[in-house]
């Protein structure tokens, strides 16, 4: 751990370090180059997983699975697309799998659960912003349930596109590439997701 931290500190920052050189070095088995590559993107990857799955354990699983898949397949990366596009394609596939599995599980459990007894995942995670305004806090509290429900009612693809565009700031073209679809399809997905959320919030927004 100590060795790794120092080694990474001694390396130039990713802006100075040419990414293509890093990828080539990692392809030749340079583990430090691989670590530097991981560190350039892993915070975003973890944030995407956390925002989508709202569970530190599942986010951790996605992180491991994604970067191990990158490590195993780095040899086959031929620079046909940018590295982040390739990485996000892997991450989105894994996250979509998790979301789909979860949806199936939820549908299976839906009959057994009472309507009001559902576990609110948003209660279990730390809020990104400390909000000190009591009025806003109250409003946020009421909105929370509706947004939570609206987000969980989106299809996994809609949820993914909304996440990548709204929270990660990726362009729709890049999102289309990551999801193996067209920009137009990503656009439609974002539109549907926003409309659904808008309808679910009703008078609150």
């Amino acid at each position: 751990m100590l060795k790794q931290s120092i080694s990474t500190a001694a390396v130039a920052s990713p802006t100075v370090m040419d990414e293509a050189s890093l990828i080539r070095a990692a392809q030749q088995g340079d583990q430090d180059a691989f670590a530097t590559l991981v560190h350039s993107y892993d915070q975003n990857v973890l944030r995407i997983a956390m925002n989508l799955l709202r569970s530190p354990e599942e986010a951790k699983d996605v992180y491991q699975e994604a970067f191990l898949r990158v490590y195993r397949n780095l040899d086959s990366f031929r620079f046909d697309c940018s590295f982040p596009t390739w990485l996000y394609r892997i991450v989105t596939n894994i996250c979509l799998d998790h979301l789909r599995k979860r949806k199936v599980r939820r549908e299976e459990c839906a009959v057994a659960e009472s309507a009001g007894g559902e576990y609110n995942l948003l209660e279990a995670v730390e809020e990104h912003r400390a909000d000190n305004n009591p009025q806003r806090k109250l409003l946020t509290g009421e909105l929370r349930t509706r947004i939570d429900r609206a987000l969980s009612d989106l299809t996994p693809r809609e949820r993914m596109v909304f996440e990548l565009r709204h929270f990660q700031g990726l362009r729709l073209r890049a999102i289309g590439e990551s999801l193996g679809t067209t920009e137009e399809a990503a656009k439609n997905c974002l539109f549907r997701a926003t409309q659904k959320m808008r309808a679910a919030l009703g008078d609150y927004a």
């Binding site: 892993d42 530190p56 948003l122 990104h128 929370r144 808008r198 919030l201």
Partner: peptide, 30 residues
Amino acid sequence: ELHAAADDQAVAPSLELLSACRQELRAQVA
């Protein structure tokens, strides 16, 4: 307003989680 409300729901992974993920990945890659 909808966007602002969605922003309020955003969650940030803790640095401890990031650090744990990195350590585990490093061990598996090794």
